[in-house]
């Protein structure tokens, strides 16, 4: 860090975005700077409450919340599908709000209360949303499923809390858990197996509405 040429590169990488970010790692025409002086690892302590249990971690500061959960706490129910906020497989609930855990560093969450799929229910004691996903076959390969379920639980809470969405037509009345409201709010969670119609049925059942 601190090398102006490296910073310049980061900026270019940002600008190119989806088009060539990985390519830049080894672009041939570029005049690379000499290797940066050997860096020391930077670690930091962070305290997280995950599914009600306190954890003290000493982490490389670059560690995402997702990798802290998966690689350090071995809570691998939270999935890594894209690692940059495009797929939703890593959705967890932090201090009551759902977020993409790949897009946030673990050290930014000192003292946070985190709920992962493991905290919602277990194979022997399922959360109602988990049971509804099984009943309605709201999955296929299962890889996006924990993120879908964390999102689904949080979506119903958001609607209950009166938080509007892009498709809410009247901001002066309480939003309802309609099919279109749920589908809009769930659209950050990709399911390539295409279980959307079944997920909508599962959510409708938990919300107590007709599918």
């Amino acid at each position: 860090m601190g090398d102006p040429i490296d910073l310049d590169f980061n900026r270019r990488q940002m600008l190119l975005g989806t088009t060539a970010s990985a390519a830049l790692m080894a672009m041939p025409e570029t005049a690379w700077s000499a290797p940066a002086p050997k860096e020391a690892e930077v670690t930091a302590k962070v305290s997280l409450s995950v599914n009600g249990a306190p954890h003290e971690l000493d982490l490389d500061t670059r560690t995402t919340l997702l990798d802290a959960l998966r690689e350090h706490l071995h809570l691998s129910g939270t999935k890594k599908g894209c690692d940059h906020g495009q797929c939703g497989a890593c959705t967890v609930i932090v201090d009551g709000r759902r977020i993409n855990s790949c897009l946030t560093l673990a050290i930014m969450h000192q003292g946070s209360e985190i709920t992962t799929i493991e905290g919602l229910g277990t194979p022997e004691n399922l959360h109602p949303m988990q049971a509804a996903f099984i009943k309605h076959d709201g999955y296929q390969c299962g890889y996006c499923t924990p993120g879908q379920i964390c999102s689904a639980v949080a979506v119903l809470a958001e609607i209950k809390a009166g938080i509007p969405s892009h498709v809410t037509t009247d901001l002066t009345v309480q939003p309802q858990a309609t099919s279109i409201e749920m589908r809009e709010r769930m659209s950050g969670n990709i399911c390539r197996c295409g279980a959307y119609s079944n997920i909508a049925d599962a959510m409708a059942e938990v919300a107590g509405r007709p599918a």
């Binding site: 989806t18 088009t19 060539a20 990985a22 599908g81 894209c82 940059h84 495009q86 797929c87 099919s179 279109i180 749920m182 589908r183 809009e184 769930m186 659209s187 950050g188 969670n189 990709i190 390539r192 295409g194 959307y196 119609s197 997920i199 909508a200 599918a211």
Partner: peptide
């Protein structure tokens, strides 16, 4: 060129009816 899930678009919940 569009080699990620933002550039390569696949259907999401809002795209699919019952």
């Amino acid at each position: 060129v569009n080699h990620d899930l933002a550039g390569y678009e696949v259907p999401v919940h809002a795209d699919i009816p019952h």
